[in-house]
Every structure is written in C-alpha cells, then in structure tokens.
Design a protein around this nucleic acid. Structure first.
Lengths: 227, 227
DNA sequence: CGCAACGGATAGTCATACTATCCGAACGGC
DNA sequence: GCCGTTCGGATAGTATGACTATCCGTTGCG
C-alpha cells in the first residue's frame, strides 16, 4: 500500500517523543504502548505510531487528568476497535473519559437516572441509557439537590444541553474532512472532546467574572453576617 | 443581633459533618478550618460555620479537584474578604480555582495572552487582563496550536464564549435573590461555578455522543490505515 | 478521684506514577 | 572473534499528597 514505514529502536523513540526511557518502559509494562515488532532476535522496532501514542497518553494524563487504568482502557479500544462500528468506538471512548469510580446506587439514584434519560430522550438526543455520562449526570443531579435544595429540577439542564448540542454540531462539522479511517477518527474525537473541555471551563469562568463585575461591581458590602 | 449560636466541641463537629476527627485535625493544622473559639481553659468551641466550611472543603476537593494549598487560599479570601469589594473577592476566588501551577513564559506566551485579551475586550467582556483564567486560556490556545496545527485562530473561541456569556447571565439571575452578604455571596458563587462545571462537561460529552451517532451511526469502517 | 475527651505534636500509612538499577544477551565496529 | 554499547525484561526504590494513628500532658465532669 504505502512505502516502507521508518522504524527505529527504543532509545530513538525516547528522543523523538521527548519521553524518558524509564517512562516508556513503564507504559510498555502497563499496556498503554503496544510492544514494537519483535524480530526473531528479541529486538523490537518502533514507528511513528508509537510516537503518536505517547502524545495521546500525555494528553489524556495531563489534560483529561486520567489515571493509568483509564488510559489503558482507551488504548485497548483504539487497538482493537477496527472491527466495530465507529460511533460505537467513539461512544465507549467517551465512556472511558469519565474517571470517577463508583456510581451511586439505591432507588434514589435509579430514579434520577430515569429522570435524566427521559429528559434527554424527550429532547431527541441519541445517547445510550447506560452511557457513563448519563449515569454521572444523574449522580451530579443528586449532588446538586443535596447542596442547593431538593427542588432543583432536571429541566435546569436544558439551556446548557441546548447550547452543548449546538456547539457539538459545529465541532463535528469542522473535523469531518479530516477523517481517513476509524482509528484516526476515534483519536480525532478524543482530541476534539478532551482538548476543548478545559477551554470551555475557562471561558465559563471568564463569563462569570464578567457578570459578577457587572452585577456587584464597585459595591462594598454594607453588612456582614455569618459565612 | 440573633440569639445564641449553638456551639459544640470537636467530637460533635466530627459527627455532624461526618468527617473523621483525624481529618479535622489535619484541616486545622493546614489552616483550612478556622480554630474554634478558644476559651481561657484551652477548650475550643465550634459552630455551624465550621460544619459548612467542612462541606465547602469537600466540594472543592472532590468536585473541583483542588489541592490543599488552593483550598487554603480560597478559605483565606473568604475569612478575610469582608473588607473588599464583592466582585473583587469573587474574581480572586475564581482565580484560585485554577489549579495549574506554572503558566508558560516566553514571547510566544505573551503574544497569545495579548491575542486572547484583545478578543475578550473586543467582545465587551469585563475581565482583568491578568486573570488566571485569561492566562490559562492563552496557554490552552498554544497547546491547541501545538496539537492541531498553528492555524487555529483565537476566534475559534467565539461561539463558546458567546454561549458561556449567555448562560452566565442566567446563572447569576437565578441566584441574585439569595445574596445576603458578601461572604455568603462569595460562597454561593463558588458553588455555582464549581458544581455546574462537571455537569457542563457531561452534557457536552452526551452531545458529542449524540452527534457521533448521527454522523457515523451504523457505518462499519471499510478500510483501516495506521492510527 | 478517676476516666474519657481535649489540644497539640510527631510519625506512619497508602496510593499513584514514575525512576533507577541490575542482569544477561545481542549487535556491530574493528 | 572481541568488547563496549544498547537492548529487553525484571525488581526495587523514590517523590508526592492527603490523610491517619499514636502519644502526651491537661482538663472537666460525674
């Protein structure tokens, strides 16, 4: 198909990817980085695939804040996902981005999950009933009610949901032309999802500062009670 | 002003706040939790203020993912902020929510900061030029360019910024009636900012799954090249 | 009077993500 | 063929952060 792929040995991989050799060995042990092709002679050869994988690992660790087991899960999906429906791979990758461990249990949690899913379904959103993000969203709703009062309705999510759906259309529109194959589409989806999340949060904080200044600007408090 | 505040000792504080006594001692040592009023006899009395503070600590740690020094900084602002302009306290609290340490340096970083600030200023956003979120946003822009190509314009933020500003108006509108004094307004702003951030992220992931299914649904990839 | 609870100090634990060292085998330039 | 370098693989050590446990001398209540 294409010409020879340039291969090299582990020390060059370390140089090219600017990753300490000890970390590369660690990632190999932990199964985040596939082993290079082992020649009969017990020498392994690496390629550009491994350089990109190391970059992905760094983004998932530093930007998404994922722990090693979660990163491993994503790598497994990418390495073995060629057989599957692309949207299925992307959905499972998004699942794996949720780093929290134990979803809440109990009748309260089940009810919240149903409430959240019904809201999404009612808005015409195509999402699996048991998607990690849906389950986590239900938990977040419970947390919100515990903190701010039990009258917080799930409908409070609607303005945010509408805004996110509108923006998501734009995100995918912008990247559609880049998609060559399933694996790179999945990687692209990871970068698109992960790299923009902190930006979204920063923009929200900036917007909050802006509104706080407009609302409370230059007003000294006239009275102080208990915090 | 009001009647007697019910006070109690440290073991009851542990029970009420469902926090291990050892953690309470740790937070006292670290300066996250103000010392109870020390009677002449070397016994300290705590009140509801301390219960609420422990709850705030838990939210900042578990939801915002802040480290102890950042939480301490926020607590200091809340405890000593009575004298200051309210919007000023809120702005500095939002600064402290940014957990990353070292902003990038160099001419490239300075240029990016200027670019980002000019964009915000041009859109009429009232934000300090050196706000943590602005500096971090400039760094994120550099990271984006390093990953996706150096042609990513700062204007790519505009749709997100507009959406966040519109939502922020709504956020503050909903909470304006709750504001009794500066300290509780600041705490309210923290909860409003922090509790909704993970929800926003979850909704975005759900929207991405939705769009991915619509775009790639039920299509098996026909070819697979290198990842 | 005695025993539990207190404040305060110090040291220990646990998890995570590396990082360093050691070993024996294989290249590869001479 | 020799030998210094680099390899793959295994094992052990380190750094950090957030608690957690223990000890000690004091205090207060029944």
């Amino acid at each position: 198909m294409s010409g020879q792929v340039r291969t090299f040995m582990v020390s060059e991989l370390a140089q090219r990817s600017r990753t300490p050799l000890s970390s590369i060995k660690f990632y190999l042990r932990e199964g985040l980085l596939p082993t290079g092709d082992l020649e009969a002679t017990r020498r392994a050869f690496y390629s550009d695939v491994h350089v990109r994988r190391l970059y992905l690992i760094r983004v998932l660790r530093d930007v998404a804040g994922l722990a090693v087991p979660a990163i491993r899960e994503i790598c497994k999906l990418l390495d073995g996902g060629g057989e599957r429906d692309l949207s299925n791979v992307i959905a499972h990758v998004i699942d794996a981005l949720g780093r929290r461990e134990s979803p809440a249990s109990g009748p309260e949690a089940v009810a919240a999950r149903r409430e959240v899913f019904d809201l999404l379904h009612g808005k015409g959103v195509h999402v699996r009933r048991n998607a990690k993000a849906v389950v986590d969203l239900a938990d977040a709703l419970l947390g919100l009610r515990r903190t701010l009062g039990s009258d917080v309705p799930a409908e409070a999510f609607v303005p945010y949901l509408d805004a996110m759906c509108a923006l998501a259309e734009k995100d995918f529109e912008a990247n559609k032309h880049l998609v060559a194959d399933a694996a790179s589409a999945a990687v692209g989806a990871i970068f698109g999802t992960v790299l923009w999340e902190p930006i979204l949060i920063l923009l929200r904080r900036i917007a909050h500062e802006h509104v706080a200044v407009k609302t409370f600007g230059n007003k000294k408090p006239r009275e102080r009670r208990r915090a």
